[in-house]
């Protein structure tokens, strides 16, 4: 008989649990559910920005310079006469792309490092953990400024850097969860029937650290959006004329904010609402999926 047939199956989430889970979310965590709805709305705006935006993000119109919010331009216009609502919608698109790509890449790296070091332990774990320690003792933003200045600004660069960055930082959380799962009976059972390490990691460890992975992923989307906008604000993120929420608050627009305060208000408001929604949603997910992580961040 093969090892696979003897292994007791790891407890897995039931298939159609998603709907039931959403129902539980709405009933027990109304604020988190509202956050989830805003998050979904943000995704919708980002995905369909091309259809929703009334104007192009870089459509310059000199006669409409610095118009206050009105029916024609709900968010007003900037110093080049570009419609701010359209720019914010396209900004949502960029944020969705960057937020998700960074979160996917970062979570993948976290899981890879966390699962391997947490399960293997010993020297590999020690070396990797010292490396993570040294990495985390330097201020994020300072490392990011130095690294971005090396690879240059641009969307793909930002995604890779932030992904690596969050990946290494988040590996700690996954590692902790793996260490807790490692000593469970079903893992020992799988080991004793001679399942390969790769198989144990994939079939037994990974499904059981899924809750913290999901929570990590959600919070990383928000953190990535915030980090990207911070870098763009400093002028080393996604270069203009790309309509990033952070970039709109910096650069040439700053001098016009005193005449047109909506230039300062709108992009930041979008950013704050979206990040707030993701945070509350992530908190609610954590409470429901992984009570052990409560209070950690």
């Amino acid at each position: 008989m093969s090892a696979a047939a003897l292994e007791p199956a790891a407890p897995a989430l039931p298939r159609n649990a998603l709907l039931r889970f959403l129902w539980r979310l709405f009933r027990t965590k109304p604020l988190g559910a509202v956050g989830g709805v805003i998050f979904a709305l943000f995704l919708f705006c980002g995905v369909f920005a091309d259809l929703l935006a009334p104007y192009g993000f870089n459509q310059i119109s000199p006669i409409n310079r610095l118009k206050p919010p009105s029916l024609q331009f709900p968010f007003g216009t900037d110093n080049l006469g570009r419609d701010l609502l359209s720019r914010c919608l396209y900004g949502a698109q960029l944020s969705v792309i960057i937020g998700f790509c960074v979160a996917i890449l970062g979570t993948a790296i976290s899981v890879l490092i966390g699962v391997v070091t947490g399960y293997l332990g010993g020297k590999v774990d020690l070396v990797a953990q010292r490396f993570v320690d040294a990495w985390m003792s330097f201020p994020d933003l300072v490392i990011l400024i130095v690294v971005v200045s090396v690879v240059g600004p641009g969307t793909p660069q930002i995604i890779v850097i932030l992904g690596l960055f969050f990946g290494i930082g988040g590996s700690r959380i996954i590692r902790g969860a793996v260490v807790a799962v490692r000593e469970n009976m079903y893992v020992h059972a799988a080991q004793s029937v001679g399942a390969s390490t790769a198989r144990i990691l994939w079939r037994h460890i990974l499904p059981n650290v899924l809750p913290p992975v999901i929570v990590l992923f959600t919070t990383r989307v928000g953190a990535a959006i915030l980090a990207e906008s911070g870098l763009s604000f400093l002028g080393i993120g996604v270069p203009p004329p790309a309509p990033t929420w952070g970039g709109m608050l910096s650069g040439s627009g700053r001098t016009f904010m005193y005449q047109a305060p909506w230039l300062a208000l709108m992009p930041g408001l979008c950013l704050t609402i979206v990040v707030y929604a993701i945070n509350v949603f992530g908190d609610a997910l954590r409470d429901l999926l992984d009570p052990r992580m409560r209070g950690s961040r």
Binding site: A264, T272, N279
Partner: peptide, 25 residues
Amino acid sequence: RSISLLMLAVPSFWLGTMVMVFPSI
């Protein structure tokens, strides 16, 4: 608690910009 969650989401560069712009106006 709600305010503290909100503070986590408000980017400091935006808050700084607002403090520069609105009191001046």
